[in-house]
């Protein structure tokens, strides 16, 4: 092997090795108790990884139940929020004169604190169902949905309107109908923008799900468990849920990237 090639493989290898070394160092410091000294905390507030792991192992059934609640809220909210957002974008792109202003308003919702939405939704759903399970689930999902609508509608609107020059004119010369134009041109053009939106809204949906759980009627979900355990000073258990929530975020994000790489395989994107 010659020098240049060695350089190339070292380049890609080092981007795994360096962070891995860093991660291992932190892990060892954490397990060895050095992190507690550095952060001035006792092993109660920051328990060692092995202890957190044993708690996760001992409470698998309970953790799974809470995990399921959070995942359903986050993903259902993400799905419907994104669909509604895309729908808004289609309408806005169809009537651009009015659409652009509507999109500006939608983007303003991005700036509304989630904490203000959660109690509102709780009140709203109280009259919809008498089942606590259902209505608190619905309230949480609605919050996640609203958080996801804005991101998707803003990005999808760009995907539906920022077309390559003359591509719309080309469609016109084929005398393509509105639906054909959408299917052959607008939809494929908007796909990269949809993924951009999802990359922002996926972590957003998980965060919103966790936060709305703080306010919801029923005590369930990863976020609620973190809070409940902190309030009762069960820090080790709280840490177990925090680790689970991180893993959830990472796994879902990696899944999204995988789907994106499959869908976008044949496009070269900058």
């Amino acid at each position: 092997m010659n020098k240049k090639q060695k350089n190339m493989s070292w380049q890609s290898l080092s981007s795994i090795i360096y962070p891995a070394i860093f991660g291992i160092v932190v892990f060892v410091m954490w397990q060895g108790g050095l992190l507690n000294i550095l952060l001035h905390t006792d092993t109660n507030t920051l328990p060692s990884p092995s202890r957190i792991n044993s708690i996760i192992m001992d409470n698998q059934a309970k953790i799974f139940l809470n995990l399921k609640a959070t995942v359903i809220v986050a993903l259902v909210g993400l799905l419907f929020g994104s669909l509604i957002g895309y729908g808004i974008a289609i309408v806005a792109a169809q009537y651009r004169k009015w659409g652009a202003g509507g999109i500006t308003l939608a983007s303003a919702f991005n700036a509304v604190p989630i904490v203000a939405l959660a109690p509102v939704m709780n009140n709203l759903t109280k009259h919809i169902s008498s089942s606590v399970d259902f209505r608190s689930m619905l309230a949480k999902t609605l919050v996640v949905m609203i958080v996801c609508i804005a991101g998707m509608s803003v990005n999808a609107y760009r995907g539906l309107t920022e077309l390559k020059p003359f591509s719309e004119d080309l469609m016109k010369t084929y005398a393509a109908g509105n639906f054909t134009v959408f299917k052959k041109l607008l939809l494929p053009n908007s796909i990269p923008y949809v993924f951009t939106a999802l990359r922002i809204s996926l972590p957003g949906s998980i965060i919103s799900a966790l936060v709305t759980e703080y306010f919801s009627e029923k005590v369930i979900g990863i976020g609620r468990q973190i809070r409940e355990n902190i309030v009762t000073a069960q820090f080790a258990t709280a840490w177990a849920y925090i680790i689970i929530s991180c893993l959830l975020g990472i796994v879902l994000y990696v899944l999204l990237l995988l789907v994106e790489s499959v869908v976008m395989k044949n496009r070269n994107r900058k």
Partner: peptide
């Protein structure tokens, strides 16, 4: 960090 729900970690930070 982007994927970790930081807001969910608010309580633990308080305990820190």
């Amino acid at each position: 960090i982007q994927m970790i729900p930081i807001l969910g970690m608010a309580p633990i930070l308080l305990s820190f």
